[in-house]
């Protein structure tokens, strides 16, 4: 994947498949390290299954034998000298935490994170998504629970709402990114 935001979208899709009702995507930048956390309240995994998940020959999917999403993210983080961790329990949801060394030459650009968050919401408008990106120079955030309240029954996947979501995150990201 060329962008970190594509990994994030892909990992959040696992949360969708796990039946999550809330997905929290948190990016924190400090001291040359970008920590990315994707947390959900979906079905979770047993310890035995979790132990095999970073191995690319594990997947519960039927159309193709090899699950790629998690191994690809783990590889991307470790290539920057960073770390990967996954915590999960049946009924308790799953948290994937990765750290990237942003100064490393193999560090992927964040890319179109606004597009990823918008795509996630468009594909699963019944799930709540909380996006937070904090850096020393500023913060970008979005919480679909707040949007829902303002929209009073107008669906999140309405074209004008999706455009607003994309543009709002883009604007906030630009306010503190070089």
């Amino acid at each position: 994947m060329k962008e970190l935001s594509l990994h994030i979208l892909d990992i959040a899709m696992n949360s969708v498949k796990a039946g999550a009702s809330l997905i929290e995507i948190t990016l924190t930048e400090a001291g040359g390290v970008l920590t990315v956390t994707v947390r959900d309240d979906g079905a979770g995994m047993t310890p035995e299954f979790l132990a095999t998940v970073t191995d690319p020959f594990t997947t519960t999917r039927t159309t193709r034998k090899v699950g790629l999403g998690i191994p690809l993210l783990k590889l991307a983080a470790e290539q920057t000298g960073g770390t990967f961790a996954i915590e999960s329990a049946p009924g308790a949801g799953t948290t994937v935490t990765t750290a990237f060394h942003t100064g490393h030459m193999d560090n992927p650009p964040l890319g179109d994170i606004a597009g990823s968050v918008m795509s996630l919401i468009q594909g699963s408008p019944d799930i709540d998504v909380v996006y937070t990106h904090s850096a020393p120079a500023g913060e970008a955030s979005l919480d679909t629970r707040v949007l829902r309240e303002a929209l009073g029954g107008i669906p999140l996947e309405s074209p004008d709402v999706l455009l607003w979501i994309q543009q709002t995150i883009e604007e906030e990201e630009r306010s503190f990114q070089p």
């Binding site: 994947m1 594509l6 979208l9 892909d10 899709m13 690809l72």
Partner: peptide, 10 residues
Amino acid sequence: TCGIAAGARP
């Protein structure tokens, strides 16, 4: 994953 990696988001 395969779609996203190949450019499905744009």
